[in-house]
Amino acid sequence: MGLAVAISGTAFALAFVLTISAPLAAKEPRGLDASSKWLVDFAPNKCRLVRTFGEGEDRHAIFFEQYWPSARTGLSLAGPRFKRFRSKTNTRMKFFDGQEAMPTEPFKGDTESVGPAIVYSSISLSMGAEADQGYAPGAPNNQLDTNFANKVEFVWVRQRGKEVQLNTGPLGDAFAVLNKCTADLVRDWGLNPEEQSKLSRAPVWKNEKEVVRSAVRKYPNAALVRGEEAILRMRVMIDESGTVTDCILNEATVTDKLNSPFCQNMEMAEFDPAIDAKGKPIASYYATSITYRIRD
């Protein structure tokens, strides 16, 4: 048994709750209709969009989570119908009739409120759960695509004959609120989100392989023995000289023994600073997903 660590790079609080309404999709024979409005949590270090489906013992939930502006989002689907789903197993996914089902391999997880879950580190409504594409300075890919989100009718997944469909209706309005939330996060970090979206060059991590190797060597043995896997979100603040000034690590999945050493190792990280639209060095951030997987 070995350890694999995947890094998905995307270069680069306020706390209150609001609800927004989105039209319900037409009832589908195999689907669960929404039993709540969308709930958006503007948390200090992340933005979360939640909605429940079904009632009583058949209650399910969808969680979209973002920790920085991105065209992709974390996704968790939870409820009793996911009890027999397996981790890292081919799972087909689609969001509207006529869309070709996309192959994915989610983690298996659990939630206190609605039970077993499948968890995706990063998904795109149009491309599925592929690796992050990276940050392209000045391009409109640092936010969720609300136009495409309005095509959504449901979240449908199928694994080994087990099929679950949650009838969300269009997601454009809900994703617009997530975009606003992540822009507010950037402001809370002391940066201007408009300036950051127009960088001519994002921060460049020059010694990534060296830092990652050091962090993997320090993987807690207790976590390895327990077979603990995890999805973590790391954000590093970088000043005009390319110096790391802060590192924040958030758990996207709950673990018991896995205390990742990545922020300690980021003290030795070396960056070329971001460059603004006028060609000058500017303070910015580097944000990435870290996925711990145990290899058989």
Rank of each mutant, 00 (worst) to 15 (best):
L3S: 04
S36I: 09
L75V: 04
R84K: 13
R92L: 15
L32W: 10
Y67T: 08
A6H: 05
F16M: 06
R51E: 12
A78L: 07
D33V: 11
C47D: 05
A34C: 07
P80N: 08
A25H: 13
G2W: 00
E28N: 12
L49T: 01
T73S: 12
S35E: 10
Q66M: 13
W38G: 10
E28Y: 09
A34Y: 04
D58V: 04
V5G: 01
E65C: 04
L14D: 09
I7G: 06
R51T: 12
F64I: 11
E65R: 13
E57F: 08
S70F: 07
K46I: 02
F53E: 10
Y67M: 10
E55T: 15
D58I: 00
F82E: 03
L39C: 07
I62H: 03
V40C: 09
Y67I: 09
S36Y: 11
L14T: 12
L24V: 14
T19Y: 10
S8T: 01
A26G: 15
L14G: 07
A26N: 12
R84M: 06
V40Q: 01
M93K: 03
F85V: 01
G54D: 00
T89Y: 09
H60Y: 02
P80T: 10
A43C: 03
N45Y: 12
L3N: 00
L75C: 08
A6F: 12
C47P: 04
W38Y: 12
C47E: 03
A26F: 00
G2S: 13
V5T: 02
L32H: 11
A25P: 05
V5M: 13
A26E: 14
G54L: 06
I7W: 08
T52H: 10
E55R: 14
D58T: 11
K88M: 14
L24M: 13
V17S: 11
R30L: 13
F42D: 01
K27F: 08
D33F: 01
S21A: 12
T19R: 13
P44R: 10
R48P: 00
E28C: 04
K37H: 03
A78H: 02
F85D: 02
P23Y: 01
F82V: 03
S87V: 06
P29L: 13
A13Y: 06
F63Y: 15
A4G: 08
G9Y: 00
L32I: 05
A34W: 03
W68D: 09
A22L: 10
D33Y: 00
K37C: 03
K94S: 11
T52G: 01
A71Y: 05
T91W: 03
L32D: 07
A71T: 06
L49H: 03
S8C: 01
P29S: 15
F85R: 01
L39F: 08
R86S: 11
A13W: 05
C47W: 05
V50K: 15
L18C: 07
F82I: 04
L24E: 13
R72M: 14
W68E: 12
F64M: 09
S35K: 05
S70E: 08
L3K: 02
G79L: 05
K83T: 11
S8A: 09
G79K: 03
P44F: 06
L49Q: 05
S87N: 06
T73I: 15
F82T: 03
T73L: 11
L3F: 05
G79T: 01
N45I: 12
N90A: 09
S87T: 08
P80E: 03
T89P: 05
D41K: 14
C47A: 14
